[in-house]
Design a protein around this nucleic acid. Structure first.
Length: 811
RNA sequence: GCGGACGUGGCGGAAUGGCAGACGCGUCGGACUUAGAAUCCGAUGGGGCACCGUGCAGGUUCAAGUCCUGUCGUCCGCACCA
């Protein structure tokens, strides 16, 4: 078979018949939205990871289509982003040009893969038609109060005079010029994802996702219940701390504010001013990674001020230390050195008192003791333990108006401003008189200008493009400037699955009715690296849009599957620097797209992945040849009368139906390697039957070969279309229903049992399926092998596992 | 440091608590060939043939790769979250 020719042949036929198009008008069949995470066109070609994500998932989609679903499987490109911009800086090729060129190549390759993508629904996030609606999303979130501005630190390279993304910071230095990177505050846009923290957490219980992914999101959201406690300073200033251990509040010997805390300078006494300023400066230099390292030695400085412990009335010192994070809780903590490791280390270093207020139950208390224990030296709460102590103490604090119970989340609001060129411009105008004014919807899109100096020279690319920046205020008509920042590309990918439902709409991001019909996504397949960011952002968008009345469902992705990672042959992640990149192209050229897809499905456990190894690819090719030979033999067989149906026929028919059942189950479970193994078994069974002498039931043979082709079709689409045609089948093979097993054929007259005596295998024996447990028990005792072991002993117990095993316990 | 997943032949990998190693690669043997390639058929965990085998040590069970406890190793995620 000329693989190249038949691939082209069937791709053209599918195309001509618009066979891959989803038909929204078809109400007969149940819709099924199968979605693969769209491609990021940073490189020109598809790599093995693309094939591994898209090939097997396409086979799943085709399988569901044959099972009678109206399948929608779209594809598009997540086309904005930093790599294209960096590439442009390096080569001078404009990001738009390189991206569109890459997309064109990838489209061609994706089509050559033979996946049934509905290209009529294709989207590219960098086109005006798309990012217009990304900007619209921003405006809706703004209207709803879910987009706001605040100061936030960025990585700043003082030498390049520019903002760096985290990945451009290498060991605290600028990747380009090697100068130390500092943190600098800029006013930036945020999305208030924290408003949905509770629902993002509880919604996880309603989706069919890998448990691991759900746990990662739970940790990322990081719900914690504790208590806020207010401390009052000598000068009258008040601040709150957050703690999960209010049962230790009598052991507080000092408090610590984050260096960025607004009260940090206000509470500094003149004598401490220099030391505090120096410390704040020191803390601002430390980059995020250093700062967050738990092994970093604790540092801090005394402010010179004191505050009062609200429960003991004692005067305690106020410190600044960068082990306290301004962004979590209240940015201030009460320090209990006796019962917290960090506080213990800090107090030891700075000679602060350590007061024990918790005793270990039934043992010696060794400080720092951080577990729950018996409250002591905390009258009137002495003797209480753990949760009960916390409840009582929190209630007491609440009753005197000094705070009370509080839930906190680790989740932060989503910073969406990027000081970059290649993204969707933020649709906001800054007016001296009116402040930040959203661009009116009728003026969208705010077009990203083409002629821009994106090479770094001290200013962000859009900021120095006067044509872009200068505009008029939509409110007062006065002179105003545009926001020079672009949106994080995760904003684009937070709603693309909705746009696929209505990709050409120029009046709205999507039509409600169309989205209602298609969404939510039934099966979403993509890399586990998106467990937290993309998948959380997309869920947030869905919930926000629902609350604005644009949608009517809570979760965008009902079922989620992560494919594993194909590593280089050396077991490392494929990368140019490792020199272990395996290109799919050579294999596809030599063996064809179908063989390559089959091999990816067969050679790895789909969700595990593993090191690349091509040992088995020839075997797949051979397997296909074997199937083709069977088809050649079966093709010439017409209907016959008076056919034998003896034991051999029964065995073949059993193999046929058993494998239909197993392949269906395995495909549904994304267990592709075992599905292909079943198909090989069926192929072997057919060869075995074909090799028999004597009269054969050729019609059964033919029908079984036909089923084999249908079962294999989702995994080797072009190949099986061709085989289907050879068998004289009408229409496309994908118009045929996926075979269903005949239950009657799965009922055997007898089954092989393992016979055990005292849990040791004695023999194997065929037992009629009609036998009852009692009959089986009696029967096995007549076997000579069993009699030998049970001689002179009595049977105390007999365990029968129907169809599998008998275990006689004797003694 | 915390959390999670995983650990099975020479290799990739299978096994609702019920015959460990499906399927395939590789290897060995045979058939067909002048010969090779291709193809087909068969064998293939180890072994002293009593048994022993799923990283290691225990436990639960009639029965454990599977469940429980501990331990070692690999990978992933989070990482001063008070």
């Amino acid at each position: 078979m000329d693989i190249k020719k038949i691939e082209k042949k069937w791709q053209e036929k599918w195309e001509a018949a618009k066979f891959n198009r989803f038909d929204p008008a078809d109400k007969e069949r149940e819709k099924l939205y199968v979605l693969e995470m769209f491609s990021y066109p940073s490189g020109a070609k598809l790599h093995i990871g693309h094939w591994y994500n898209y090939g097997p998932t396409d086979s799943y989609a085709r399988f569901k289509r044959m099972q009678g679903y109206n399948v929608f499987q779209p594809m598009g490109f997540d086309a904005f982003g930093l790599p294209a911009e960096n590439y442009a800086i390096k080569t001078g090729i404009h990001p738009k040009d390189s991206t569109l060129k890459n997309i064109e190549t990838m489209e061609g390759q994706l089509k050559a893969m033979g996946a049934m993508f509905d290209w009529s629904a294709e989207i590219k996030t960098c086109t005006e038609e798309y990012y217009k609606w990304t900007q619209w999303m921003f405006l809706q979130l703004y209207k709803k109060g879910l987009a706001y501005r605040k100061e936030a630190p960025v990585n700043w390279c003082p030498s390049c005079n520019t903002v760096l993304a985290n990945e451009q910071v290498v060991e605290g230095r600028c990747e380009r010029c090697d100068s130390p990177v500092v943190r600098k505050n800029l006013t930036q846009w945020f999305f208030k994802i924290t408003a949905y923290a509770e629902e993002l957490l509880s919604g996880l219980d309603t989706v069919d996702w890998p448990e691991k992914t759900k746990n990662m999101q739970r940790n990322w959201i990081g719900r914690s219940t504790g208590c806020e406690i207010e401390f009052e300073c000598e000068n009258g200033e008040k601040f709150k701390v957050y703690t999960t251990r209010c049962d230790t509040v009598y052991g507080v010997t000092y408090v610590v504010l984050a260096p960025e805390h607004p009260l940090a300078r206000k509470l500094t006494t003149p004598e401490q001013r220099d030391a505090v300023e120096a410390y704040i400066d020191y803390a601002s230099r430390a980059n995020e990674i250093e700062r967050l390292s738990s092994t970093r030695e604790k540092t801090g400085v005394f402010t010179g001020s004191y505050c009062t412990n609200p429960v003991t009335g004692k005067k305690i010192p106020i410190y600044l230390a960068d082990y306290v994070l301004y962004s979590y809780g209240t940015g201030a903590v009460m320090a209990v050195p006796a019962h917290d490791e960090r506080d213990f280390a800090f107090a030891t270093k700075y000679g602060l008192p350590i007061v024990k207020v918790i005793e270990k139950q039934g043992g010696e208390t060794i400080l720092p003791f951080t577990e729950d224990g018996i409250v002591a030296c905390s009258s009137p709460f002495d003797g209480l333990v753990g949760e009960e102590a916390r409840e009582k103490i929190a209630a007491c604090i609440a009753s005197v108006g000094k705070g009370g119970k509080k839930v906190n989340y680790r989740l932060r609001d989503w910073l969406v401003s990027r000081q970059r060129y290649w993204g969707a411009p933020i649709p906001v105008i800054h007016c001296k008189k009116c402040g930040a004014v959203p661009v009116p919807e009728k003026d969208l899109p705010v077009k990203l200008p083409y002629d821009v100096e994106f090479r770094p020279d001290g200013k962000s690319p859009l900021a120095k493009c006067e044509k872009f920046m200068n505009t008029t205020c939509p409110k007062c008509g006065g002179q105003a400037l545009r926001d020079p920042d672009t949106l994080d590309t995760f904003v684009c990918s937070s709603w693309y699955y909705l746009r696929y439902a209505d990709p050409k709409n120029d009046k709205a991001p999507f039509d409600r009715e169309k989205v209602d019909r298609l969404l939510p996504v039934d099966v979403y397949v993509g890399g586990a690296e998106h467990s937290c960011m993309h998948l959380l952002y997309a869920r947030f968008f869905t919930k926000a849009l629902r609350d604005m009345g644009y949608l009517d469902f809570d979760e965008p992705f009902k079922r989620l599957v992560h494919q594993g990672v194909i590593l280089g042959p050396d077991g490392n992640r494929m990368s140019k620097s490792h020199g272990n990149v395996v290109s799919p192209d050579d294999y596809v050229n030599e063996y064809g797209a179908d063989a390559f897809r089959l091999y990816l499905m067969f050679g790895f456990s789909y969700t595990e992945g593993g090191p690349w190894n091509d040992d088995g690819i020839k075997a797949i090719s051979k397997f296909m040849d074997r199937v083709e030979k069977l088809v050649n033999r079966a093709a010439g067989i017409g209907k016959k009368q008076e056919l034998p149906f003896g034991a051999e026929e029964k065995a073949l028919n059993y193999a046929r139906n058993f494998n239909i059942k197993r392949v269906s189950e395995d495909m549904e479970a994304f267990s592709f390697n075992t599905a292909i193994a079943r198909l090989m078994e069926l192929t072997n069974a057919l060869y075995k039957y074909d090799g028999l002498t004597g009269e054969k039931n050729l019609w059964l043979f033919r029908e079984t070969v036909k089923d084999l082709v249908l079962l294999l079709a989702p995994c080797a689409p072009h190949f099986c279309e061709e085989l289907w045609e050879m068998l004289g089948g009408k229409g496309f093979v994908f118009e045929q229903p996926f075979p269903k097993e005949d239950q009657a054929a799965l009922v055997l007259d007898e089954k092989e049992y393992a016979v055990q005596v005292n849990s040791k295998i004695v023999c194997r024996v065929m037992i009629p399926t009609a036998y009852s447990e009692k009959e089986i028990e009696e029967y096995v005792q007549t076997l000579p092998e069993v009699a030998e072991k049970t001689a002179g002993k009595s049977v105390k117990k007999c365990i029968v596992v129907l169809g599998r095993l008998v275990n006689l316990i004797v003694g």
